[in-house]
Design a protein around this nucleic acid. Sequence first.
DNA 1: TAGATTGTTAATCGATTAACAATC
DNA 2: TAGATTGTTAATCGATTAACAATC
Lengths: 213, 213
Amino acid sequence: MRWRKISDAVVRRLPIYLRVLDEIAQNDESALISSQELGNKAGVGPALVRKDLAWFGEFGKQGVGYEVEYLRSELRKILNLESEIKVALVGVGSLGLALTRYNVKRYSEDDSFNLHIVALFDDDPNKIGNTVEGIEIHPFSKVEEIIPQEGIQMAILTVPGSEAQRVADTLVKYGVKAFLNFAPTKLNVPPHVHVASSDLSLELQRLAYYLQD
Amino acid sequence: MRWRKISDAVVRRLPIYLRVLDEIAQNDESALISSQELGNKAGVGPALVRKDLAWFGEFGKQGVGYEVEYLRSELRKILNLESEIKVALVGVGSLGLALTRYNVKRYSEDDSFNLHIVALFDDDPNKIGNTVEGIEIHPFSKVEEIIPQEGIQMAILTVPGSEAQRVADTLVKYGVKAFLNFAPTKLNVPPHVHVASSDLSLELQRLAYYLQD
DNA sequence: TAGATTGTTAATCGATTAACAATC
DNA sequence: TAGATTGTTAATCGATTAACAATC
């Protein structure tokens, strides 16, 4: 499944739409939804909802709206969420631990959630060999072996800022194509690799601006 | 300090510039930097750097560039980072715990970091009364008393999605003006309240899209 | 002075919204 | 059929980039 280059702004909204549909589908298998209503719940205008979806095909019926269950399943195909995606997490500090626990719980409870942390890496000798929720902590040197073996395509970085770039470089070398970066560093990666950043202190500092007057 | 309404896109870049300046100022008290170089390190074009700064005043010298230390101090004023901002965290699960530890460490190690978690809330009877890094965990009902008393203006939400809206409503009622929301929920807040969201599964799902082809 | 870089205006680019014919 | 809502095109809005006079 491949489309002309879709803008990042569009792709960012698709998971939001999907979440709205997930919730509705839970209560009503055969629900219908209009772009108006979907937009409301997603915090987006109705025209934009239609335009976003139109990049990928025609999913609605004029005068009726969208079948929730059908649109949901199409969005899952578009977002590549139909088969399992294996994820590594590097840096098993308290944040890494929290994210791992959260992910394992979500993965086991929600059948349709296919993003799965399957390997942990940390170079602290006190952590190596331990397990978190049944997942073993490996030394970082094992990346070379484990990433290709397990077919890991995505990584979560919860390492100190000073190590993030080096770690990312190595992971890219062994085939990781997408990062969720919690380190306070701008990662430099080749153009085919994607990075999403969650930078706590950047966000806090930004919010501070709005506390004025 | 008040300016005409500055766009969100601009405000979002200011902390990025500040981080670059912080790093340079550490090594060289009297460094100069051009919009070119600042842009490079921030991942932004040089013209945009100049335009962003120009919203707030004239901080450079033609033919020379910007004095790092001076621009840094001006950006800190603009972002409202010069005095302490007190923050509450609600939901002391493993993620809340991790963020609290991280914040306390950063606050104590970095003199110029002024965002400070000073109160924790959780309704789990096993947690109430415990302390994390010296900060006591209160029942959520104490919000009414503690938020105004401590002058807390910002809150971090690490509660389950089902509770996030209710919790936010209460906090807004007692004076919280900005949220960093980790719950997988779109918060509805009055127009004078600002929300930054860090939504792990939304980001992972978005990244999955780029693993295709 | 000559070279460099700012602050700012005009041009471009891209994203969102409005409008409406098609049609369920 | 009449009413509603899609898919899509055109209009608008906003953000980024290019260009350059001012000036250090």
